[in-house]
Design a protein around this nucleic acid. Sequence first.
DNA 1: CTTTTTTTTGCATTTTTTTGCAAAGAATTT
DNA 2: AAATTCTTTGCAAAAAAATGCAAAAAAAAG
Lengths: 249, 249
Amino acid sequence: MIKEERQRLIIEKLNRDQKINLLELSQLLNVSYDSIRRDVIELEDKGLLKKVHGGAVANSYLSFKNTHNSSADQQEVVMLTRKAQKLFYNHQTILMDGGTTNFHIAEQFPKNLEMTVITNSLPLAAVLNEHPKIETILLGGTYHKRYQITIGNQVMKQLEHIRVDLYLMGFNGLDPEVGVTLRHYEESVLKQKMAQAAKKVAICAITEKLHTVETYKVCDLQDIDILITSLKPSDVTLNAFRQQGIELI
Amino acid sequence: MIKEERQRLIIEKLNRDQKINLLELSQLLNVSYDSIRRDVIELEDKGLLKKVHGGAVANSYLSFKNTHNSSADQQEVVMLTRKAQKLFYNHQTILMDGGTTNFHIAEQFPKNLEMTVITNSLPLAAVLNEHPKIETILLGGTYHKRYQITIGNQVMKQLEHIRVDLYLMGFNGLDPEVGVTLRHYEESVLKQKMAQAAKKVAICAITEKLHTVETYKVCDLQDIDILITSLKPSDVTLNAFRQQGIELI
DNA sequence: CTTTTTTTTGCATTTTTTTGCAAAGAATTT
DNA sequence: AAATTCTTTGCAAAAAAATGCAAAAAAAAG
């Protein structure tokens, strides 16, 4: 039995039962306790589960994401959102808008992170409920039911009085030529305003979004300060970003 | 049985029954009393429940789905929220704050009701997602994690520019002598401001809340325009309300 | 095809965590 | 105030995790 197969079986069992027991599993797969334990350590490093005393439990944020993404995409998202954690320090104030990526990043905030998060996304505020040390400020406005965010003039006005350390921008398309683009007009205007309210702008781009262009333009490449991507440093696509002086993670 | 599984089961049982007994639970899960108690301590640290003498109770002050009240209470809530529907017409703009009662009322809005709802409650906004014809406006501000509402100066400021037809006020205690009272100071101030922004103020009082007095006063009886109650019209308690010219439903 | 290198695996030892127990202290009830 | 019930505390046994090491297996190199 090769390692990869074992690990695949572990993940499968975990998805079924929500929890696994190391001893039980080692007997079931007929390998030593240590091998299983090492597998679980590896899987935890990949962010695919959470190790606990006596076994492992499913990573909650992965379970309901299964629906729309392939497992390869999932792994990329896990990796990217982990990388993104480098952006956050105690006593910062950051601005985050809606979108699944931002949602997953917020889910993975360290529990002891002391920060202020300003957002117009209701799911994000709900997730931050789990992080007692994070102060959440919600931007009020007309509630957009589909995207579950607030939009409109009132949000814009509140942004005028705000100055934050970092803006983590959600988006639909990123192209070296065109810049950052979006499907929804009102949001694109809002994001421009948000970018103005921040000292730095960061975006987190899964490979799927690179080289795609959507209808409404948010900003140019040069307006982005930090890009989080899973592309290898050698990738030619990154040259365009480097030329704009964008910090790559 | 690993610790995490036990704790998950504890939370599940807690969500079902709203309260748990340590001894009973230790027998059920077949572990020592001490282990269960230590689990409960950990869960309390995580803010997932509240420890009480001999057991634990659900922490979520707003555990909407399964109310911790008796079935008699539940029936009363259902009846009251039905009655409350009389207050709503098309093309109105109303203000609603947090609390379970308002939540249940919003749940029962007719699907074809065309209305604008302004609120500082996130669960309420989430519920209104199910009502396509209702426009929801969210008041922005500091997010209060426990009550799941926005509070603070920013909310107050937005209220200054608002004038609505009706304010449906949530509250903790209603007494003919003292008036409307609340447990939470900041909210009580906010509710005063909300009342000022509305042409009419309505409250929906389950019998349990009548004659109870909490720490912070929101307003006098005379500031209330409409009271929804399940008391019989002959009940003497209602006389005080009638004298203040309050419309009874 | 053999040798070398790397990876994987299992085992023994140490360290840490968890668990159950008992005695002492609080809180609650009668 | 006494009795009962629950909590807290310290402790020791048990369970599990981490660590270091060597044998076995697999992969790479010659």
